[in-house]
Write a protein that binds this DNA or RNA. Structure first.
Length: 716
DNA sequence: GGACTCTTGGTTTTT
DNA sequence: CCAAGAGTCC
C-alpha cells in the first residue's frame, strides 16, 4: 500500500469534512464525478483509525459489483477486514436467515426472481378465475411489487381497497403470497418487506443490529425505496450514526419504488444532520459538464447544485444525425476505430442505449469491424434455461417445498413424466394438503396414476434422494455430479448445444470458485447469494473490450469515451415515460447520468429512421436535444450514407392504396398538424369520410381527430 | 406424452 | 420483431 494513501491529505476541504465526520447523521450530496466512492472508502478507514471496530461498520451499496469494488478499495487501505459491505438485499437475506423464527419463515427459503414470480402470479390469477388479458401477470406483479415496497401487506391492502380493481388485486396479492409461502419462497420485495417488519415488530432485534452495526453508511441513497428507508432507520435508531450519500439528479429507479424524497427530506428526518456538498467534478471536461448542466436545469423538481469543473477544457461534445440505426451503429464502430488509432484503449470506450434490444444492431456492427466488446447485462446469465435447470436441481435439495423448481426439472431432461401425470400428482398433493414432493414420494398411493408413470416417478424420487446425501459437500463437486447424473449433460450433448454446455461449465467453475473463496461454503448460502447476483455485476473493466450497456447499468461507472445512441422521442425519453412530467424528468436524469459518465469525449447521436418491432419508422429527434440548444432543423452534422443491399426492400408504400377522398394512415406515420405540430399516428380507424386518427404529438398531448377536418400533412 | 407449427399479443429500466 | 401459448399431429 502506498503510504500516501493512508492519510487522506489529498482530499478537498469538503471531502475531508465528510471523511472525518464522526458521530451522528451525515448527508453527503455528491454530484457526478465528485469522488464520492473515494470519500466513503476513506471514511471507513478513518472510522477504523479512530478506534471503531471494523466489525461494527456496515456499508450498503446499490449493486454487488459496487460492494466488491468498495471491499477491494478498503482492503487496499489495509483496513477492511470484518466490515460488512453489501447491498440491501444481501443484508436482508443475512438478517432473515439469522432471525428466521422471529420473521416466521423457514431459513432455507428460495429467492424467486422475475421468471419464478411470473409463474406464481399466473397461478394466483388462475386461482381467482380471472382473465389474464384484463389482469396481465406483468401488471399485477408490478402492482404487488409497488405495494410491497411501500410495506403494504396483502391484509392491509385488502382492508383498504374499495373498488373492483383494488379488490381483485387484493385477492391476487393474497393468493400470490400464499403460493410463495407454500413454496417456502421469498421474492426480492419480500426480502425487504419481511426485514422491515421484523425490525419494526422486534425492538430487541433492532437493538442487537444497532449494536452490531454501530456505523451505517449508505451509498446511492437517492434510489432507496420506502422499505429500505425503514430498514436503515431501524438499524440506526439506537445510535443515529447514519451516513448517506447520493445525488438527487441521478435518481433513476422511481419505477422500482425509489423515493427521491428519502434523500430530499434527510435533514428533516435527522434534524441534527451534518450536510456536506461535493460539487467539484474530477471526472469530465468542462464541455461535457456544460452539456450535462444545460440538460438537467430543465428539471423543475430538483435542488440546485452546480457542477464545478476541475479539468482543463477538452473536445467538443458531438451530436450527429444518422439515416437509420444501422448507419448509426456502423459509424459508432468507425469512430471507435478512429479512437483506437489515436491510442485509446477499448476498455475506455462505452456505448449506452435506453433499451436492451438496442444492443443487437451495435453488436453486429462491432463484429463486422472485428472490435472486441462485452455486453453488460444482455441476456442474463442466470436466466438461461440450462442454468436455471441445473440450479433448480440444487434448490430442491435445500428447499423441498419449492414446487416451482420441481416443475422445472421433473421432466427436464424428458423422462416421460408429462402434463397429465403432473396434474394428477398436483391434485393429490392439494387434496391431502401435502407438498408436491411428498406427493411424488407417495406416488404409488395415487389411484389416478397407472403403473408406468408411477415407476418413472419412483426413479426420479430415488435420484433426488441420492443427490440429497451429498448436500453437505462442496457446491462445485455437487453441481458437477448432478449435471452428469441427472441426464442434463447427456441431453445437452446430444442436442449439440455448445453454448449451453459452455454456460453450464461456467456455472460449475463459478461454484468451485465460491467454495474456494467462502469461509463456510454451504449450498443454501450459495443459492441465496447467486439469486441476488445480476449480470451487471460481471462487468470486467480489465477486459480489452468496448462496453455496451443500458443507461441504467451505466450508473456508477466512468469511461474516457462515451457514445449515447438513439436520442429520439420514444426511445429517450422512452414512450412510457413521456406522458407525465415526473417520469419525463426521470428520463432526463437518465440521460444526465449517461452524459456524466464521460471523462474526455462524448458522442451523442440519433437515427432519422429506426426499425421498431419490425417496422421501419421515421423518428422525431429527442426533445432533450432541443434542450441542449442544438438546432435540429439543420442537424449538427449530417452524414453521407450509402444504402446497403437490404435496404432495397424497405416498404414505404403502406399508404399507397389510399382512396382519393380519404388518405390512409399507418400506425407510426409521422405527421404535421398546423396547430399542434409534429406527431405520430397511434391509431387509425378507417371509416371512409368519417375516419378518425389518434395522434400523439411531440409536445406531449394525445389527440383524437376527425381526419377530414384535421388537415394533416404526412412527413416521410 | 411429446415434438412441432401457427397465432397472438406485447412492447423499459433491475435488486 | 420476438416470445409464449394454443393447437396439431405422430
Amino acid at each position: 500500500m502506498e503510504p500516501t494513501q493512508q492519510q487522506p491529505d489529498n482530499l478537498t476541504p469538503s471531502q475531508k469534512k465528510a471523511v472525518l465526520h464522526k458521530d451522528g447523521p451525515l448527508l453527503v450530496i455528491a454530484g457526478p464525478g465528485s469522488g464520492k466512492t473515494r470519500v466513503i472508502t476513506y471514511r471507513i478507514a478513518a472510522l477504523i483509525d479512530s478506534g471503531v471496530n471494523p466489525h461494527n461498520i456496515c456499508a450498503i451499496t446499490f449493486t454487488n459489483k459496487a460492494a466488491d469494488e468498495m471491499r477491494q478499495r478498503a482492503f487496499a487501505l489495509g483496513r477492511s477486514a470484518g466490515t460488512h459491505i453489501s447491498t440491501f438485499h444481501s443484508l436482508c437475506v443475512r438478517i432473515l436467515r439469522q432471525y428466521a423464527n422471529f420473521a416466521q419463515i423457514n431459513p432455507n427459503f428460495s429467492i424467486y426472481d422475475t421468471t419464478e414470480q411470473s409463474q406464481c402470479i399466473k397461478q394466483a390469477i388462475k386461482t381467482c378465475e380471472l382473465d389474464t388479458t384484463n389482469f396481465s401477470p406483468a401488471r399485477m406483479l408490478e402492482a404487488v411489487s409497488t405495494l410491497k415496497n411501500k410495506l403494504i401487506t396483502a391484509e392491509d391492502f385488502e382492508n383498504s381497497s374499495d373498488d373492483f380493481f383494488s379488490n381483485t388485486l387484493a385477492k391476487i396479492y393474497q393468493h400470490y403470497q400464499n403460493i410463495l409461502t407454500e413454496n417456502n419462497a421469498l421474492d426480492f420485495d419480500d426480502l425487504l418487506m419481511k426485514t422491515a417488519y421484523l425490525l419494526q415488530d422486534n425492538p430487541d432485534i433492532c437493538q442487537q443490529l444497532g449494536d452490531r452495526y454501530k456505523f451505517l453508511l449508505i451509498d446511492e441513497y437517492q434510489d432507496t425505496n420506502h422499505a429500505q428507508y425503514k430498514i436503515a432507520k431501524s438499524i440506526a435508531s439506537t445510535h443515529n450514526n447514519i451516513c448517506v450519500t447520493g445525488d438527487p439528479d441521478q435518481s433513476i429507479y422511481r419505477w422500482r419504488g425509489a423515493d427521491i424524497r428519502n434523500i430530499l427530506a434527510f435533514e428533516t428526518d435527522y434534524p441534527n444532520a451534518t450536510v456536506v456538498k461535493l460539487e467539484e467534478n474530477f471526472r469530465s471536461t468542462p464541455n461535457i459538464l456544460k452539456t450535462a448542466d444545460k440538460l438537467i436545469t430543465n428539471n423543475q423538481n430538483r435542488k440546485l447544485k452546480s457542477l464545478i469543473p476541475t479539468k482543463p477544457s477538452g473536445e467538443d461534445v458531438t451530436v450527429e444525425a444518422f439515416e437509420d440505426e444501422k448507419h448509426e451503429a456502423l459509424t459508432v464502430a468507425d469512430q471507435i476505430k478512429d479512437l483506437e488509432n489515436k491510442g485509446a484503449q477499448l476498455r475506455d470506450i462505452a456505448v449506452f442505449y435506453r433499451v436492451n434490444s438496442a444492443s443487437r444492431v451495435l453488436e453486429e456492427a462491432l463484429i463486422k469491424n472485428k472490435i472486441q466488446y462485452q455486453i453488460v447485462r444482455g441476456v442474463e446469465f442466470y436466466s438461461r434455461k440450462e442454468i436455471r435447470d441445473l440450479l433448480a436441481y440444487l434448490k430442491i435439495l435445500v428447499n423441498p417445498q419449492d414446487e416451482v423448481a420441481f416443475l422445472r426439472i421433473i421432466n427436464t431432461p424428458t423422462r416421460g413424466i408429462g402434463k397429465t401425470t403432473i396434474d394428477r400428482v398436483g391434485a393429490y398433493a392439494d387434496s391431502k394438503n401435502i407438498t408436491f414432493y411428498d406427493a411424488l414420494k407417495n406416488a404409488d398411493k395415487i389411484d389416478s396414476l397407472s403403473k408406468a408413470p408411477k415407476a418413472k416417478i419412483a426413479v426420479f424420487v430415488n435420484m433426488i434422494e441420492q443427490f440429497k446425501k451429498d448436500m453437505d459437500s462442496n457446491v462445485g463437486p455437487l453441481a458437477e455430479k448432478i449435471f452428469a447424473e441427472s441426464g442434463l449433460e447427456n441431453f445437452l450433448n446430444t442436442s449439440k448445444d455448445q453454448n449451453a454446455l459452455e454456460n453450464v461449465n461456467e456455472l460449475i467453475n463459478a461454484a468451485h470458485e465460491y467454495d474456494k473463496q467462502t469461509e463456510q461454503p454451504s449450498l443454501l448460502d450459495y443459492l441465496q447469494q447467486i439469486s441476488l447476483f445480476s449480470d451487471t455485476d460481471t462487468y470486467d473493466e480489465s477486459k480489452g473490450a468496448v462496453s455496451l450497456m443500458t443507461l441504467h447499468a451505466a450508473k456508477g461507472l466512468e469511461f474516457e469515451n462515451v457514445f449515447i445512441v438513439g436520442l429520439e422521442e420514444g426511445m429517450l425519453p422512452h414512450e412510457r415515460g413521456a406522458d407525465n412530467e415526473e417520469e419525463l424528468e426521470e428520463e432526463r436524469r437518465l440521460f444526465f447520468v449517461g452524459i456524466t459518465r464521460a471523462k474526455t469525449q462524448l458522442f451523442i447521436s440519433y437515427a432519422k429512421y429506426r426499425t421498431i418491432r419490425g417496422q421501419f419508422l421515421r423518428t422525431i429527434p429527442s426533445q432533450f436535444l432541443y434542450e441542449l440548444g442544438i438546432n435540429l432543423t439543420e442537424p449538427a452534422k449530417e452524414n453521407e450514407y450509402e444504402y446497403e443491399q437490404d435496404h432495397d426492400d424497405m416498404e414505404f408504400d403502406h399508404y399507397d392504396h389510399s382512396s382519393p377522398q380519404t388518405p390512409q394512415f399507418s400506425i407510426g406515420q409521422l405527421i404535421r398538424h398546423q396547430k399542434f405540430g409534429l406527431g405520430r399516428v397511434k391509431k387509425f380507424d378507417d371509416m371512409g369520410p368519417n375516419s378518425v386518427v389518434e395522434i400523439k404529438f411531440n409536445a406531449g398531448q394525445t389527440k383524437t381527430l376527425m381526419l377530414k377536418y384535421a388537415n394533416l400533412e404526412k412527413i416521410e
